[in-house]
Structures are given as structure tokens and as C-alpha cells.
């Protein structure tokens, strides 16, 4: 029962942050601020929806002692680690590409990168 509540809470948090990430992409003014919404919110939201799956697998593992739920748990955790590392690095690559194409940040109060990268 408590486990079901935890799963529901994790799914709610995950969906909330995923939705915020998508709305941020639609709402923010330029590519850098959109990247903020994309990397942080959707990564965090996806970690929480995956955490719900991991909790479900853990609960079923204790209930049935079936080995396949241990596999589901392990693979979900590996997927979460892969997601967290690749998203941050991908965001860095996109930001660098946008910079090299000459997009400057909208509404910026300071820009220490005025000269284009060598």
C-alpha cells in the first residue's frame, strides 16, 4: 500500500517536471534558456518516472521472489545513469554549436564570450 503511494508520488513528480521542461522549451526566448529547461527538467522528470518503475520492480521482487524483476530493477538503474550522463554532455555540445553559429543570448546583461570561439 505504502509502496503504491510512493510509486504514484514518483510518477506525479516525474510527469510534473517533464511537463515543465516541455513548457519551458515553448516559452523561453532563446536557445540557451531553452536548453536550461530541456536538460534540467526533462532529465529530472525522466529519472523520477524511471524511479517509479524501479520501485515497482523492487516491490514485485519481494512479493514473488522472481528473478526477472531483479533484472528489470538493474537495467532501469543502468538506463538512468546513461540518461543523466548523456543529457548533460549533449546539452553542452548543443550550446557550443549554437555559440559557434553566432547566436548570442537574448536579453543578456553580461556576455564574456563576445569574441567568437577560435
Amino acid at each position: 500500500m505504502i509502496l503504491n503511494l510512493l510509486i504514484g508520488a514518483a510518477i506525479a513528480i516525474g510527469l510534473f517536471f517533464n511537463a515543465l521542461g516541455v513548457f519551458g522549451i515553448l516559452r523561453f526566448p532563446d536557445v540557451y534558456t531553452r536548453l536550461h529547461a530541456d536538460t534540467k527538467a526533462t532529465t529530472f522528470g525522466s529519472i523520477f518516472t524511471s524511479l517509479a518503475v524501479a520501485l515497482y520492480a523492487l516491490g514485485r521482487l519481494f512479493e514473488t521472489a522472481d528473478g526477472q524483476y531483479a533484472t528489470l530493477l538493474l537495467h532501469t538503474l543502468v538506463a538512468v545513469v546513461v540518461l543523466a550522463i548523456t543529457n548533460a554532455t549533449g546539452a553542452h555540445a548543443i550550446a557550443r554549436a549554437a555559440r559557434r553559429r553566432g547566436h548570442s543570448p537574448a536579453q543578456a546583461v553580461v556576455d564574456k564570450l563576445e569574441e567568437p570561439a577560435p
Binding site: R34, D38, L83, N87, I94
Partner: peptide, 10 residues
């Protein structure tokens, strides 16, 4: 690309 990246994560 930003939108594509978000869709991939989802």
C-alpha cells in the same frame, strides 16, 4: 535540436 533532444529523453 533542443526540441529533438527533449523528445529523445521523453
Amino acid at each position: 535540436v533542443v526540441a529533438l533532444d527533449a523528445i529523445n529523453t521523453l
